[in-house]
Amino acid sequence: MKRTRGEKIFNWINIALLVALAFLSLYPFIYVFSMSLSTAAEANRDGLHLYPRDISFDAYKAVFTNPAIWIGYVNAIFRTVVGTALTVVVTCLCAYPLSKKHLPGRRPILFAMLITMLFQGGLVPMYLLINGIGLIDSLWVYVLPVLTSAFNIILVKNFFEAIPESLEEAACIDGAGPWRTLFQIYVPLSKPILATVALWTAVMHWNMWFDALLYINDENKLVLQMFLRRIVVENSTQLIEQGLVNPDVTQFTAETIKAATVVVTILPMLALYPFVQRYFVKGIMVGGVKG
């Protein structure tokens, strides 16, 4: 394709802009990464910390010899994998009927779902519920309360609505029931949006710690983020200001260990992204429809 001069100039500006943005986005990672590879003293130096100086692996040694980290990894992977898989399935199951305009009661259902997005019962009722149905100290407490969300369902539903009715009619003539239609026609055609939902869900699962704090007492069932939280936040101002922690008796965790824990927590998610990314490459949908 031939390009005009204006387009070429735009192209270069675009590249420059995105490189700048990429650098700015990368900076906190660079900062934390070079901190994690520094000695405790070096981490206290005033400056940008663009690269590690006075290199030391002590922080990583400290992090990896803590068995809690490995426990956290296993549980975090469990909740992310199982949670994401279930979310995608349940979201599809809900979105498919709701994408049909003729579904009786469609609008009230959508409206009720929307309400759940805005109104939450609050901590106490939620705790009583989880306690009441016996999910305290169960790994399922990570998965079931966040099985899906109105937000996901609405997004997927809208994507489903854009798929031509003719495809479904054709499937119907072939004798396919709604389940086969959903999984053999709708799901394959909706890979980009399902990949988005899966990515967002996986990220949410990976980042969640509050449910672990509330519902889990068994140290062997905690997730990685909870350990990160303990290391990074426990002695922070927030708790000091609320009088929950006395700064004079707490030992502040070394900055380097905080940084190493952050790096260790982020890397798996960073590794995941490229695998999901291929679903965002243009053209899949087109090929699918034209078949």
Binding site: V90, F119, V124, P125
Partner: peptide, 23 residues
């Protein structure tokens, strides 16, 4: 098909929503 979703929303969203009376 809506059943799993309906059960989920009922138990984990509408049920605790009763707690809003605390306000």
């Amino acid at each position: 098909m809506l059943l799993p979703g309906a059960v989920y929303f009922l138990i984990f969203h509408f049920l605790p929503m009763g707690g809003l009376v605390v306000a």
